[in-house]
Structures are given as structure tokens and as C-alpha cells.
Design a binder for these strands. Structure first.
Lengths: 355, 355
DNA sequence: CCCGGAATGGTAAACGTTTTCCATCCTGCC
DNA sequence: GGCAGGATGGAAAACGTTTACCATTCCGGG
């Protein structure tokens, strides 16, 4: 069907070695006349090197595996896009794998990716379980983690300072005078969820407000989960004038549920999210949230992968980016009605508490 | 690093041919005793066949290329997920390619995918340009189009009846008494956009309402584009009490912009979208929209691909699914305030027109 | 005139499979 | 006992590259 290097060699009247040398641009020099003859033959026959043959010989396939929990959660496509953009610029292809947060599926994928001889793996996922990660490292497969990294494991990673992000979100609420702030967390097993919870606690404790377990719920990072947590909180009579959610999806679900219970946003309850997905600015009221530089994180992760593949120093580097609080309307802050400035415990306005 | 078939053969005391026969389960029978010896050796050495070597030999790589305009547009991940799910169940891997709707990039990807010997291509994109598609067909590469298909080209495709969907959306509005209905279309070059526009026109003309070009704008399928179209419409004084948008993203952008202009939703203006992305039910008011079975479309496309790869009849089959109108709150219909039933031109209520 | 070495390009052995032949060994039948 | 023919499994040739070696040519210097 498509021309092989052999046919090009014959057409150009040279050996296959020479053709290989000119098309793969190896260090070996070939004279200008022959180079041009080869190039002419290549053009004439429409030759394209077969990448799988090349991969077999060079033991480098130019593919990397991307493992995400669920590509239809808008947080991950943004990262995937960054990864894909720099990968394709570098001539690499990316294999997409959806695990649905299922460890068994993740392991299965690891197997098929290894069989496919991917050059490296980017995990935009991973729970607390690190067994297979360690194994990969031992096997020498380049791995970079993005957006999520398990607790005490020394691996390359591109992250955001989750704790600080959640702290800033909470501080924003405190600055606006809120004192009873609820927290909608993620799955308690996920490190990323724990860090955000910790940030929330930090902020509260810094101003002397005790953290009240009755105001904390755990969701699943989906909108419905956020709604469910709010419903549970309200049903059991928790009192709060604001809520920080561990991600935007849950924040949006929470907003919907709060509305269903007759709460006005942001007047009765302020809410802030985490991630800054596209829809954060599209819901009403526009969601105040902690932005992660998702696209950039994807780019950085892939760039680090490129370094690793290029034979760079393999000692793990952990890149932690700063999150950025984006103030929109869901806390009422951007309308300039609320007092701005440092607050101390006990000060600040009292809103009519929810329930 | 990892064991090869040769080492397994040695360990089991058989030839590589035999090992190949047992691990790849070819038609050739091998006796139970030897099979077990081989299997034992495989287990002992942790052998996994190298898929790139296999691909080179069999000329089948077990990968398919997925080409989407932009994975961060939530419509496509839903499709991708369907594709990926059935692909992985069939042992195939999918290579993700983002074209940003750029034909040059699309062509580049086609090249690299061919070099990588993908077994088939799924396009969740494609404008009016069909040159490269025809070429692929001539080359015998299995191709299936999903969600978008150019006008007069005979290729496998999984689609939705866009025209009918848009017609039903418009009819819904007509039934609610709207007479001045604006349309936010997609890029005029995209077949899918033209079909939806046609459906809108159909509905209007069926009740004798002339379509008014002054109420039609063209966006880019993004939220900001939808907002821009609304702004343009309002600025030039177009009068309408409802708008149908060619996709949800634009509908959501339109809602935001309408609100900025002081219009209440759905009381002053009703809006209906197209696609039913997750966020359609998360915005406020919840968006009435024409649902596409996105995940299912992805599955069907991949299943068709599997048939094609299995050597099924290659005469193109065009699967067109029925869209489904999902009535939520953005038209005010679900609150039961509007008269329901057949309407005729000129009848129906008059709302205070926009501008 | 000879020789060392740089420049160029060819030969052939991989890379890890699959698969086509073939060889061998049974088994049962005449 | 010879033999047809089915089972079984081995040898080796691909698949399309890359690359380590090696051969040739050419040049300048002694």
C-alpha cells in the first residue's frame, strides 16, 4: 500500500541504510548529491517512515499514555489539552485512558500501555494507592503526576497548592464577615480532598474559629454529590452563611440545591468553588472560585515528560503552582457591598443563618 | 527489561512458534501438556507480548485515531468516553487528536496517524471540506464520522437528526405562544449548523411565519460567541421573545448576555439550546434543550468501527438517531403557566418584546 | 609514490512477533 | 508390517526500520 524504505532505496539507487540516514537525520553525514536523490525519491513515492517498525527497532514509540479518571469531567480535558498540545508539537502521540477512578481499571490500562511500549505515563489521577506507581518507577518508566499526587511519594508532579487555595477561599469568606462556613469536601481518601479540607481548617483556626464537624460534608466531586451534601447539611439543621466546596462541580450542585431550599445566592448563602472550570463564570451567580492553571499544568507536565525522555536528571521534581482566587458574584463580594479588610474572630456582620 | 517470547520458549523448552501459538491463541492446536508448560513459563517470567512487534508483523496495531475539534468543549468528551469505553473493551487503544477546527492541523494529524498505522479513524469533527476524507476512503482506511458529517459524501456516520431537533425546539417555543423567535446559529460553513438553521426555518414556515434574517445571527459554538450574537441582535434593535441556539454553550452565553441587558429569564425571553451537555441542567434557569445521545453515539461509532475492522460489508451506513427535546425551565414551559397545544400564526400571546 | 585517515555509503544483524512450510510421531487400518 | 493421514511442534522467513561494522574512495603530506 504505502512505499517502504526498500522501494525508496531502489528508486534512488542507494542502500536502505542511506535512506534511513537521510530520513531519520541521524548523526551520520551523507553527501549532498545523494541526499537530494533520496529526498527526490521520497517525494516521488510519497514515502512516510513506518513508525511502528521504527518503534520496534529503536525501542521508543513516541507515544505517552494519559490516564484520567473521567474525561467528561471538565477539569481534565483542560489538562489533557495542554498535554496534547505540547506532545503533538514534539511529535508524540497520546493514548487516552479513562479509569472512572477505578483502581482495577487503572491497573489494566497500565498493563496494556506497557505492552504498547509507551515511552512515558502521565497520571491526571491517582488515589492514595501508590503501589503500582512505585513499581513503575522501579521499572524505569518515566511517570509524571499532574493535579493529584499521593501523600508521601517522591515522584515528578505538577500540582497546585491545594491547601493554600482552600485557605484563601475561606479567608475571602471570613473577610466578608462570614463566621459560619460549611465545607463540601471530596472523597476523604483522596489526598487532594484532604489538602483542601486542611486549608479550610487553617483559615478558620487562624482567626480562632473552631472547626465544626457538623458543618463539614464529603461529596464525590460531582454536581449531584455537592447537592446531596448541602441537602444533608440542611436537613440536619446545620447553620451556615457560606460554603466552600472542594471543586466547582460540587459548588454548582450546591448552589442548585440551596436554591431549591429557598436560599438566595449570594444574599443568604455565599459559595466559593475550586478549579475555575469554564462553567464557573457561566452559572448564575457567577461562581467565585480558586483557579487552577489547568492548561498550563498540562503543558508543564508534558514538558517535564519531554525532559525525562530526553535523558534529564531523573531525581523527581515537584512543581507546585500557586492557585488564584477569582472573585465573581457568588459571594456578593464583587458588588462592593461587603466590608473589605482584615477581620478578627467575632467581628464582622451577622447574616441570617441558614436554618 | 521485560521477557521476550524467546526467553519464554527457552524456559518452557519449546520453540518460539509454539509460544506464539499459545499466547496469541491462533487456530493451530497445541497439546494440553505443552500449553500448560508454556503458560507456566509465561506466568513465571511475567511475559507480556510486545504489541508493537505484533503490530509490525500482523499489520494491525489495535489503535484507532480519534479526531475532535476541541476536547475541552464538553460535547466531545461525552462522545470520546463512549468511544473509549467500547474500544478498551475490545482491546483497542485510542489516540487523541485535537484540531481546534483547523484543517491544516487535521491534515497533519492524518499524516501522523497513518505513519502510526492506526487501524481506523473516527472523526468527531469535520467541516465542509471532504477532500482528505475521500482520499482516506480510497486508501481503504476505515473511517467513521460521528456527530458531524459533510453534506453529500457517502461514508459511515453516526449522527443525530439535527434538522428535526431544531424544528422541535422551535415548535416548542411556538406552542408556548412565541412568534418572534431569534436564532443563534453556528459557523455558516458547518453542515451541522446549516441543518439546525434549516430546522428552525421549517418550524417557522410550517405555521406561516416568515423567517426574518434580522433575527438570525451566527456564532462559533462557544459561550462568548452566543453572548456576542445576542449583543449584536439587541444593539441593532431586533425584536424577539425567544431564542433558539444551535448549541448549549451558545445558549448559556446568550442567557448571560440577556441578563446583562436586564432581561428576565424565562419571563422576558425564553431560550432553548441543543446538545444537552451536563451543564444544561446546572445553569439557572435550567436550560431546555434538544438532547443528543452523545455517549451512545460514541459507542455506536466505535461499534461500527469494530464491524469494519472485522471485515464487515464496507458499504457506508449512515445511522441517524432521533434527538429528544428536554423541557426544563428556560422557556417557562415546565411551570405550566403557558398555554399548551397547537398554535396558528398570529395567534398566541404577546409578550413584551425585547427592545 | 605510499600511507593515514576522513568522508561516504553499503551489508547485515538486530528489534519481537506471526505464520508458512515441513518434519516427526502416533494411531488405526488394511 | 506398511502406510495414510491427523496431530503436534520446529525452522525460518518475513514485517520495516536502525545501526554497528566494514569497504571504498579521496586527499594531503611525507
Amino acid at each position: 500500500m504505502t512505499a517502504t524504505i526498500r522501494e525508496v532505496a531502489r528508486a534512488a539507487g542507494v542502500s536502505v541504510a542511506t535512506v534511513s540516514r537521510v530520513v531519520s537525520g541521524s548523526a551520520h553525514r551523507v553527501s549532498d548529491p545523494t541526499r537530494h536523490r533520496v529526498l527526490a525519491a521520497v517525494a516521488r513515492l510519497g514515502y512516510h517512515p513506518n513508525l511502528v517498525a521504527r518503534g520496534l527497532k529503536k525501542r521508543v514509540t513516541g507515544t505517552i499514555g494519559l490516564i484520567v479518571p473521567d474525561i467528561s469531567n471538565p477539569f481534565f480535558p483542560a489538562i489533557a489539552r495542554g498535554i496534547e498540545d505540547v506532545a503533538s508539537r514534539a511529535g508524540l502521540a497520546v493514548l487516552l485512558c479513562n479509569t472512572y477512578e477505578d483502581l482495577a481499571k487503572e491497573r489494566t490500562y497500565l498493563g496494556v500501555l506497557r505492552k504498547r511500549m509507551v515511552d512515558g505515563l502521565i497520571f491526571a489521577t491517582v488515589g492514595a494507592n501508590t503501589g503500582h506507581l512505585r513499581m513503575l518507577r522501579r521499572q524505569g518508566v518515566p511517570v509524571v503526576l499532574v493535579a493529584r499526587a499521593p501523600d508521601g511519594v517522591e515522584m515528578d508532579a505538577v500540582l497546585v497548592d491545594n491547601r493554600r487555595g482552600a485557605r484563601e477561599a475561606t479567608e475571602h469568606l471570613l473577610r466578608l464577615g462570614h463566621r459560619r462556613i460549611a465545607f463540601i469536601g471530596g472523597p476523604a481518601t483522596l489526598p487532594v480532598a484532604r489538602e483542601r479540607l486542611a486549608g479550610y481548617c487553617d483559615a478558620l483556626q487562624a482567626v480562632g474559629i473552631p472547626v465544626d464537624p457538623a458543618r463539614i460534608g464529603h461529596g464525590d466531586f460531582h454536581a449531584d454529590g455537592g447537592a446531596a451534601v448541602v441537602a444533608a447539611l440542611l436537613r440536619r439543621g446545620a447553620a451556615f452563611t457560606a460554603v466552600v466546596a472542594a471543586n466547582d462541580l460540587m459548588a454548582i450542585g450546591a448552589m442548585r440545591e440551596l436554591r431549591r431550599w429557598g436560599r438566595r445566592l449570594p444574599d443568604d448563602v455565599a459559595v466559593v468553588g475550586f478549579d475555575d472550570i469554564t462553567f464557573a463564570s457561566l452559572v448564575d451567580p457567577r461562581l467565585t472560585t480558586v483557579a487552577q492553571p489547568k492548561y498550563r499544568m498540562g503543558c508543564l507536565a508534558m514538558e517535564r515528560m519531554l525532559e525525562l525522555l530526553g535523558g534529564a536528571d531523573r531525581t523527581p521534581r515537584r512543581l507546585v503552582l500557586e492557585p488564584r482566587l477569582i472573585v465573581r458574584d457568588s459571594c456578593g463580594a464583587s458588588r462592593g457591598r461587603a466590608p473589605v479588610g482584615r477581620v478578627t474572630a467575632g467581628a464582622g456582620r451577622r447574616r441570617h443563618p441558614v436554618s
